[in-house]
Amino acid sequence: MAMTFFWVQLAWRSRHDDPARTQVGTPLTTEADELAADELRTHWDAALAALRALPWTHGAWDLVRTDGAAADFDKWVADLEDTTDVPDWALSRKGEPHAVATVLVQARRDHNADLALGEACDLPEANWFDRSVFSGLLDCARGLSLGSVERLAVYVQPGPGGGGPDEAQLMQGWDHLRSIT
């Protein structure tokens, strides 16, 4: 089964007590091990709505429709959840801290979720980092038909209470992020 992988990553200035980290990161961490689609939809929507409301400073996104789409999803998750190394920003920081949210979707190719994503991502390169583009992508992700979605995830780094990278650390550690215009 051919797959599509979509991700969007957004950073915003965020102190350790920033409630937005919880608002974005918590909904999908519900205690339940299984959820009905309607329930999952509610949590998904809450997380993405909270993310959409934030004043992002940097971001990036991608739609992958190659054979490696599913492997890319796995790679992303593995990297995100790997907390073996202590990051630079946990040890020292000079500037204002940031948080980074990551939204991941793996969908069946040529089904509705994939097609909606394809439509939303069909954008001229000059606009890729426009704020309105990120808003539109999050709106699209919120409205996806989850029936054809195989996997999804939302993560926030750092979690509540964590420090967070300053801008220089952000640009070094998340060097694919660009300023949002």
């Binding site: 990551t102 996997r151 939302v154 993560y155 926030v156 780094q157 750092p158 979690g159 509540p160």
Partner: peptide
């Protein structure tokens, strides 16, 4: 503190 979030599969 490092990361908050979850993934789900269908």
């Amino acid at each position: 503190e490092r990361i908050l979030g979850a993934r789900w599969w269908n």
